[in-house]
Design a protein around this nucleic acid. Structure first.
Lengths: 147, 147
DNA sequence: TAAACTAATTGTAATGATTACAAAGTAAGA
DNA sequence: TCTTACTTTGTAATCATTACAATTAGTTTA
């Protein structure tokens, strides 16, 4: 399935007149297939074996390009580096405050909040962001997860 | 009213055995009275006239202390510095993507989302964050605000 | 009140993510 | 092939935030 997703992403680039370079392809592929929400540095390091000469700047540049065409979203955190998430359907993130794990979960959507916010503030609303914080089962010790 | 809020905040500090220094008082007061959502640097600059010798480190240190006792929240963004918001009741933020203005709005609460997230992922949920993005009336040109 | 101890502040250096920029490479069209 | 625009690369610069050691202030105890 991620094959389809990747192809769609490449199409989006084409449609927007963005050249598909090997580096871009690789970065996109990494974002799609790795289920994680990688930092720029993680992407950089992961692709280092395939592209020994790739610059970190390239990663950042292209992450920005991808954001520009709404393929990915930046998830900024206070202390460390931003993480990047491939945009798929309506899903939200729940984040473990102990181990920083990010897990996706689906939710019907919060258009209602957008409407209310728009109504109350007079803004034209484009998007929203929402995250839930807590302790994951492993950190909570509820689960014998390993082995 | 912000008088009451400030006093409450000071009480919270006392209860948690946090010493109330002049700097802390001033930083808190600034957070309470300024309706904005200031960055650490804005706080630092604003208090520079009153505390010419105060260090940026002090601002950061104390913002962390205040976070520790849940008086304020950090709002991290991707590009620039984090902003800090005095925690009051259930309110959310709507952010203008053009001028970066942050406006508060109330919403009944999203416990439902927390419950669902907890149920689906097995996390113990503590908190959530939610923000709406859009264009404010002034930037949208809908309003003859100034004169 | 003074001594002893603890907490807070200060100044500055260090860190680390991100960006700017110039040079070199690459693709695409005329 | 020549020209032009776009990308990548390498590296230096920026900027927010933190670490840390030295100093100061507050609190406790005798």
């Amino acid at each position: 399935m991620s094959d389809v997703t990747l192809r769609g992403a490449l199409d989006t680039l084409k449609e927007n007149g963005v050249r598909i370079t090997p580096q871009r392809h690789a970065i996109l592929e990494y974002l799609v297939t790795s289920k994680s929400h990688p930092t720029a540095d993680e992407i950089y390091k992961s692709l280092a074996s395939t592209f020994p000469n790739m610059s970190v700047a390239t990663v950042y540049n292209n992450l920005r390009v991808f954001q520009g065409v709404n393929l990915i979203k930046e998830l900024p955190y206070g202390d460390s580096s931003s993480r990047f998430d491939f945009v798929t359907h309506d899903h939200y993130h729940i984040i473990c405050t102990e181990c920083d794990k990010i897990v996706d979960f689906h939710y019907p959507g919060l258009e209602e909040v957008e409407h209310l916010a728009s109504h109350v503030t007079g803004f034209q609303v484009n998007a929203h962001r929402m995250e839930v914080y807590g302790t994951c089962p492993i950190c909570a010790g509820n689960v014998t997860e390993t082995h």
